[in-house]
Design a binder for these strands. Structure first.
Lengths: 149, 149
DNA sequence: CTCCTTGCAAAGCCTTTGCACGCTG
DNA sequence: CAGCGTGCAAAGGCTTTGCAAGGAG
C-alpha cells in the first residue's frame, strides 16, 4: 500500500498524467502484494467500480513495465503476471504438471547472477526468474506420467 | 539427425502410429539442433513439401512433450520453443529489450538445482530455465531506457 | 487549450479443437 | 478392418490497436 504513492509519484515525475484509472490500477497492483495477472487487477477494481476498461489496465501495466517500475513475467504459459519491483526479488518454482507455484528467496542465486554478469555482461533480473519442473507431489504421484494414446 | 530414429522408435514403442507427417516433424526438430518454434518446424517442412498441416505440427509436438521426449519453453513472450531432450540442458539468457538470446552451460546452476531439490523437493528442469534481463549491449546503450511519453 | 488517456470494439497472435476422411498397424 | 491421425476451418485465450471523445496539466 505504501508503494502506491511512490509509483504514482514516479509516473508523474516522468511526465505521465495521473488519472483516476491509473491510480486505481497502481493501487490494486500494490495492494495485491505479489504477482497478479492483468485480469485480476481488472477484477479487483471492478469489485468497487466499473470505471476502468481492461484495455486501460493492459496499457497502464505496460507503461509501468516500460518505466521499469513493475515486472512482467510469463510464469508458465498463458497469462502474464505483474508485480511492483518493491515486492523484492524471488524465484518461482512452477510445476509443469499441476501448475503449483512456490516462491523461494533468491539467496542461492546470487552467485549465479554475479557469474552471469562477469562472464557475459548480462544483468539478470530476478523478478523474472521462474524455474519449471515437477513439484514433490507430482514426482511421487506420477512416476509414469504418460499413459499412452 | 541421429536423434530422429531414436525419437521415432520411442513413439512407436509407446503405441503411437508412425506417419510420414510425424517422421517429418521429428526429423525437422532433430535436425534443427536447438530450440525452434512450432512455426519454424512447419516452415522447414514446407520447404520441401506441403504435406503437413500446422495443426498437425502442434499436435505432434504436444505429443512429444507429453511423452517427455521434447521440452517446450516460453523463452520470453509469444511463441513457445521446442527442443529434443537430447539437445542437453542449458540456460537461456533473454534480453528483455533487444530479445537477444544467449545459451549458457548449466554448470553454475547445479548447486541451485540441488538446493531446490533438497529444500523443496522440487525437480527443476533446466531445459525450461530462462533468465530475463538486459544484455551487455542494451545496458550500455540505454542507461536511461525510457524517454517518457 | 493542448494533447495525453480512455473506452469501445475489432483485430491480432499463437494455439487448440470438432468433424469427417484416410492411413497405419 | 478398427480406430488413431490428419486436414481443414473455425474458435479460443490473451493482448494489442485505431479512433473519437474526454480529462489532466
Amino acid at each position: 500500500m505504501t508503494h502506491c504513492p511512490t509509483l504514482i509519484h514516479q509516473l508523474r515525475q516522468r511526465g505521465y498524467r495521473i488519472t483516476p484509472q491509473r491510480e486505481m490500477i497502481v493501487q490494486a497492483l500494490a495492494s495485491a502484494g505479489g504477482h497478479v495477472t492483468a485480469e485480476k487487477v481488472f477484477e479487483s477494481i471492478q469489485d468497487r467500480t466499473s470505471a476502468v476498461n481492461i484495455a486501460t489496465v493492459y496499457r497502464t501495466l505496460d507503461t509501468l513495465v516500460t518505466e521499469g517500475l513493475v515486472s512482467r513475467t510469463h510464469l508458465s504459459e498463458g497469462q502474464a503476471v505483474y508485480a511492483t519491483h518493491l515486492h523484492g526479488p524471488h524465484i518461482h518454482l512452477v510445476c509443469r504438471q499441476c501448475g503449483s507455484l512456490v516462491s523461494v528467496m533468491p539467496d542461492q542465486v546470487t552467485p549465479l547472477v554475479e557469474k552471469l554478469r562477469a562472464d557475459h555482461g548480462f544483468s539478470a533480473e530476478l523478478q523474472h526468474l521462474s524455474i519449471s519442473g515437477l513439484c514433490s507431489a507430482c514426482q511421487s504421484g506420477s512416476l509414469k506420467t504418460s499413459q499412452g494414446p
